[in-house]
Design a protein around this nucleic acid. Structure first.
Lengths: 357, 357
DNA sequence: TTGAAAGCGCTACCAT
DNA sequence: ATGGTAGCGCTTTCAA
């Protein structure tokens, strides 16, 4: 005969006390005598009872102690991005104080991703830069639980932790202009599902015009255009991913074209690092022969050679901000969505005036 | 009056059918007519019922659809390591086929980490390179649920997915010896809690002698010693973390000592990349002036300049292996722990014979 | 300080 | 094809 599973009730019977008392031994120590509590805990250890079952407790309390995190694409895709890792770290830290863990799910292209979201036992959802139309977004909303967004998507009534992407992008473009650059290549991560990487038609609308990258791109092109830069002197390449390798390939497309830009403005540091790699491979001195700008101020750009000039945003802090919004929501407190975080230009070693001919 | 929360039972009453039938509409479509099922689903959508509550279902079924993952230190520490990211990706992929998500918890130094583990609603635990004596390990074991280990700790009766660390380390040392190196610096990640980074006393025992790093180190030193390399010609530096920056600092300690090694053997690619950074900063040509070896064959080492000579292990595959062990355990199938995965030397551009004087 | 009892929301057995 | 119902394991109010 299989040994009976040890539950709180079994333990209570064994000890001849009520289940309520055992429960109190774990949850409200002040509700029973220290002696009895000790006796209960000791017997629990003997019988191998590890404490109240978290799921049953979750059902009863209406809280399981987990916050779902919806990341873009796949776990590895999300975590190959130093920015995402840092944001997540801040989020985890903030939530673990209240005893919440993070349950990861990817908004992947696979069918059924939304079922996983629907069936996940969580107390709330945080979406990190997920495309607005991905089916998991609807699934997470339908759960009827607290929701917090990081970056994207923009959802009515859902607090979002964002930054001033347009302002930052403008500052980046202005920095290059002020150095004297008039021919500037732009590197962006994917704006269109299934689009092959390559030169972007300046008039093709993005899939999601309010996405982070589309916003940055629009601000950059508008700024350059306002300064009199011609369309053909501001080629835009849509890279295949938001990753260093993709940035390297994109840079090739940018620099091996007819009109060679004197600067590359990458819409993320990852992409800029890829451009830096390209430059190193082709013995292009940075910033001598080519200026490079990033965006985000992610850690790898601070120790590259040269270190990246970039637009800084508070990364980890945004994670903690999302966490504290979620905590408030979970508590039932009213929340006011925070204003977009400010960004600021960080001038390091990867930009300089263009070389004179 | 607050609107009554829509549960399966409420929906059933509204429709005049039994809760069982509504449940079947979601879980066993073949148990009711298509027409009725459609009617139920339609009404559910109208009332905003997003499907059976995952927690209640979890209690009833004895399964919540989440596997806990215990990572070392902190979320960001774990995910700054490309190897961990890839392993996790494999794990997630394998598990999501069965509808499981990953619930992340860190074996952090903070008090209470074990409480979080104890209270986590999961169906099993995967520990990734967690120090054997960390309290969360005991907590996860006490949960009485399926357990799978990646790398460490070694626990009796618990299947572990490991690699042949000793064999790989030996191969690395032999490669350098065969090139003619006789003065080889070794870089390891922390072996002792709270030890300041620095030169390692060759006779100080590691905190955990069976840990991955201690095993690699022992194999390296034994191999070098067997080849007649003197103790002082094989300095070992214990870096402050398993990260690139720590590798850079460790390399400084190694090369700025009295006897300058002609090669650096790093026990992880991350550390080797840090050494490479040091070399670049100090204009030491690699492999001309200094040979560098890594371990793991993580992606960043494949695209560095020069690309790293390293010891390859199947990374993502180990994640899927751990996932499939967990699936089997969850199903109640018997599992046989897999033998350690083989490693193999990958010679790329960072090693060469020492320069002649 | 302790206990009795209701019920969180659901599923799976067993009936009809 | 549909329904009744017990009970998963726990917490919490209320009473003693």
């Amino acid at each position: 005969m299989a040994a009976e599973r040890v539950t709180l009730k079994v333990l209570a019977e064994d000890l001849g006390v009520s289940p309520a008392t055992v429960s109190n031994a774990y949850n409200r120590p002040d509700q029973l005598s220290e002696a009895l509590r000790m006796r209960i805990l000791a017997r629990a250890a003997e019988l191998g009872f590890a404490g109240p079952d978290p799921v049953a407790r979750g059902l009863r309390r209406g809280r399981v102690g987990a916050v779902g995190v919806l990341v873009d694409q796949s776990i590895s895709y999300a975590f190959s991005d130093p920015v995402a890792v840092l944001v997540l770290d801040g989020l985890a830290e903030e939530l673990q104080d209240d005893g919440f863990g993070l349950l990861l799910h990817a908004a992947s292209a696979q069918a059924g991703a939304e079922q996983l979201v629907r069936a996940a036992a969580v107390d709330g959802w945080v979406m990190m830069t997920v495309p607005a139309r991905h089916p998991t977004v609807a699934a997470a909303r339908a759960a009827g639980r607290p929701l917090v967004v990081l970056d994207e998507p923009t959802l009515p009534g859902v607090p979002a932790v964002t930054i001033d992407d347009a302002g930052g992008a403008r500052a980046a473009a202005e920095h290059l202009l002020s150095l004297g650059h008039r021919s500037i290549g732009v590197l962006t991560s994917p704006l269109h599902a299934d689009a092959p990487p390559g030169r972007l038609d300046p008039h093709a609308p993005a899939d999601a015009p309010d996405s982070v990258m589309a916003t940055r791109l629009a601000a950059v092109t508008a700024t350059l255009r306002a300064a009199g830069v011609q369309e053909q002197a501001m080629p835009v390449v849509e890279c295949s991913a938001s990753a260093q390798a993709a940035g390297r390939e994109g840079t090739a497309l940018l620099l091996e074209g007819p009109l060679r830009p004197t600067a590359v403005l990458a819409l993320s540091d990852q992409l800029a690092l890829g451009a830096l790699e390209y430059a190193r491979e082709h013995r292009l001195s940075v910033p001598g022969a080519l200026s490079l700008m990033g965006f985000d101020d992610a850690p790898p750009g601070r120790t590259s050679h040269p270190p990246l000039t970039t637009v800084a945003q508070p990364i980890r802090e945004r994670g903690t901000a999302a966490g504290s919004l979620m905590r408030a929501l979970l508590r039932g407190d009213p929340v006011t969505p925070p204003p977009p975080y400010a960004t600021h230009l960080v001038i390091r070693g990867s930009t300089a005036p263009p070389r004179q001919h």
